[in-house]
């Protein structure tokens, strides 16, 4: 099963650390990631640039509009995404709970199972085929 793990971070946490602390966090996190990769857990990992680099698109008065910043204003911001391969939800929880970032207070991680849209996709293809046949 694939699980999408959304890692949140309080802006400023990392910046508030001394250089030594930062190095310690990074070294331990990177080494841990090597270990996850070596065990076939990592499908993809995508760190994000800080929230101020974000741009949100939305629909307003019949056209696409934009605003600066992330969609939701919360204390914790999305810092990175990890797509994890694990046997089941408890296995995913166990793997994620060992991420070194936790003990350095980097912030919560949300785990969500990847959705399987195969059935929906098949049904939609059938609908579209019927439509074009008419």
């Amino acid at each position: 099963m694939k699980y999408i793990c959304l890692g949140y971070i309080k802006p400023g946490t990392f910046e508030g650390m001394t250089e030594d602390e930062r190095h310690a966090v990074l070294d331990e996190c990177f080494e841990h990631n090597d270990h996850l990769r070596a065990n076939g857990h990592v499908v993809a990992e995508l760190p994000l640039q800080p929230p101020e680099t974000a741009l949100t698109l939305y629909w307003k008065n019949g056209k696409v509009a934009t605003t600066d910043g992330p969609y939701a204003e919360t204390k914790e911001q999305l810092g990175g995404i990890l797509i994890l391969e694990a046997r089941d939800l408890n296995h995913a929880m166990q793997v994620i709970s060992q991420l070194p970032g936790f003990k350095y207070g980097l912030g919560p991680i949300e785990i969500r199972p990847a959705a399987d849209l195969n059935e929906m996709l098949k049904a939609s293809e059938q609908r579209r085929r019927q439509k074009s046949a008419r």
Binding site: M1, R87, D88, L89, N90, H91, M93, P113
Partner: peptide, 18 residues
């Protein structure tokens, strides 16, 4: 059995069962 399989059998969400 996986967490998801057990959850399905007992009609609870995987998060509850986990």
């Amino acid at each position: 059995l996986t967490t998801e399989e057990i959850a399905r059998a007992f009609l609870v969400t995987p998060a509850t069962l986990a």
